[in-house]
Design a protein around this nucleic acid. Structure first.
Length: 488
RNA sequence: UCUUCAGUAGCUCAGUUGGUUAGAGCACCUGACUGUUAAUCAGGGGGUCCUAGGUUCAAGUCCUAGCUGAAGAGCCA
């Protein structure tokens, strides 16, 4: 390393002597904390969380993001000089060589006696927005470029990584293949809300035809194109060839949703499996969610403990409850009966309950949080309130849909067994006025070698809301995209 | 998009029935302190009271509109 150390000379106070800092391979704090103290010199690099002390000795709490834990640096003030240490304030980035020793203080097992310090970057205390105190989540959202440097967000981002890894791990272990479905799609029939249009046309001079309509043949793809709202339809194509696939990618919805549970850009996991009935689909969803939550409990202990202590005292308890209890499974019809019973017994809902209407948030919350106090898988909804591709039951009234409802989050998973009959699917498409010409490829999977199959979509950030205990989805993604907000 | 609530120092917030020079804690700066744990102690600086109108002798405080944020609802994962 070409780093240097500068310090004032005793005889010529203005003279600065430059000495190359001894080059050592960096050790991450997460690994340092596992070491037993020897007399070897090690190097640590990171950002200063706090500096305290007196005329003789300074204590620097350093964090490098590898763990929520800081390493304590002990700095002899006389050795470096007050002036040199001054710019090492909260937020500054430094590289330190020193000896790892057993701590003389109470708060930590080991600490580093600093012998050389190089300052990579100062952080002017007058303007650096992060202080050594708690900040509101709303304030931190306004400084999304710096919030990963806080304990809370570094914990969330490490958990986010762990969950992404665990998702791939689970599917790989279960023989699923990761299928990359397109981000840009020219089919407007994915049926999950408003789409963002993709175009290379000059919006100031849009080409039109004789009748004044937009001439999309001049656009990049020669027809209207959008960002995907779901990889499911393509996922089905994969499942009907590879057997078991999953997608895990960004998803875009141009809905004007202003809630703590919605993002315009979010990540979704969509497994799709051939020869799966709806019950198999439920088994997969339950096993998958429990695996992920258990993975977090096993591998993100310190970060979860921090979030539990800081934001949500019941977090770990709630996670353990979910892994230890079977999800309640019941049909939409049974759910309605329970809700009607509740109304009879005096429970007041803002919206009326009756068979055939979609369940409101308050109804789902009643089932999950009040009645069962447990995750619930609701299935077999009336066909009128569900998507065209869901398999019709023999009663001709309900479809094999399933929603997994979680406490605090609501719908975390939505899925179904897919309609595999060419004729039934075709007539559903026609009933819902979806243009058949755009769906020919989807229908051909039913025309040639069709098979029963099922799948679901898991909102990655909704999973993270549950696992981290955060209340707002904008706090579990590094850079949130919501209506009127695409900064950073 | 609808409903409700909020916007005062860098951050978190107090500010009485409308009444003189708008406060506190933390942060920051200066000083003290021989091992601190978001160190402590003493002192200091720091304000377009969200914006624009209006009511009033007088507005941080009341009214109207807008902007921004949050919560709930709808849409959904």
């Amino acid at each position: 390393m070409n780093s240097i150390r500068i310090f004032p000379c005793e005889f010529f106070p203005t003279l600065i002597i430059i000495i190359p800092m001894k080059h050592l391979k960096r050790t991450k704090i997460v690994d340092i904390l596992k070491l037993t103290p020897t007399n070897e010199i090690i190097n640590v690099k990171g950002w200063v969380r706090s500096k305290r002390g007196n005329k003789n000795v300074n204590f620097i709490a350093l964090n490098d993001g590898s763990t929520i834990q800081n390493i304590q640096l002990v700095v002899d003030v006389e050795k470096f000089g007050e002036e040199y240490l001054k710019p090492i304030s909260t937020g500054a980035c430094i590289s330190v060589n020193g000896i790892l020793v057993a701590s003389q203080g109470q708060g930590q097992a080991v600490e580093i006696n600093a012998s050389e310090i190089h300052i990579y970057g100062e952080a002017d205390p007058l303007t650096y927005p992060l202080q050594k105190k708690g900040h509101s989540l709303e304030f931190l959202r306004e400084i999304a470029h710096l919030r990963p440097r806080t304990n809370t967000f570094s914990a969330i981002l490490r958990i986010r990584h762990a969950m992404a890894f665990a998702i791939h791990n689970y599917f790989n272990n279960h023989g699923f293949f990761y299928l990359h479905t397109p981000i840009i799609t020219a089919s407007d029939c994915e049926g999950a809300g408003q789409m963002f249009q993709v175009t290379t046309m000059d919006l100031q001079h849009i080409p039109t035809d004789e009748s004044g309509k937009v001439n999309f043949s001049e656009d990049f793809f020669g027809k209207p194109a959008n960002l995907t709202v779901s990889g499911q339809l393509e996922g089905e194509l994969g499942a009907l060839a590879l057997g078991s696939i999953y997608t895990f990618g960004p998803t875009f919805r141009a809905e004007n949703s202003n809630t703590p549970r919605h993002l315009a850009e979010f990540w979704m996991i969509e497994p799709e499996v051939a020869f799966y009935e709806i019950e198999d689909n439920m088994d997969l969803a339950e096993d998958f969610l429990k695996y992920l939550i258990q993975y977090a409990l096993d591998n993100c202990k310190e970060d979860l403990a921090f979030l539990n202590q800081m934001w949500d005292k019941e977090l770990i308890e709630r996670l353990e409850f979910v892994t230890n209890n079977k999800f309640i499974r019941l049909s939409y019809t049974e759910g309605i009966k329970i809700l009607e019973e509740a109304v009879k017994n005096g429970h007041k809902f803002e919206f009326p309950v009756s068979w055939g209407t979609d369940l409101q948030s308050e109804h789902e919350r009643y089932l999950v949080e009040t009645h069962f106090k447990c995750p619930v898988i609701l299935s077999d909804y009336p066909k009128e309130i569900k998507a065209f591709y869901m398999k019709l039951n023999n009663d001709n009234k309900t479809v094999r849909a399933m929603d997994v409802l979680f406490p605090k989050i609501g719908e975390i998973i939505g899925g179904s067994q897919r309609e595999e009959s060419y004729e039934k699917l075709k007539s559903r498409i026609e009933e819902m006025n979806i243009p058949l010409k755009d769906m020919w490829w989807y229908l051909e999977t039913r025309k040639y070698g069709t098979a029963p199959h099922s799948g679901f979509g898991l909102g990655f950030e909704r999973l993270l809301l549950f696992v981290t205990g955060m209340g707002n989805i904008r706090d579990v993604i590094p850079f949130a995209r919501t209506p009127k907000n695409a900064d950073f």
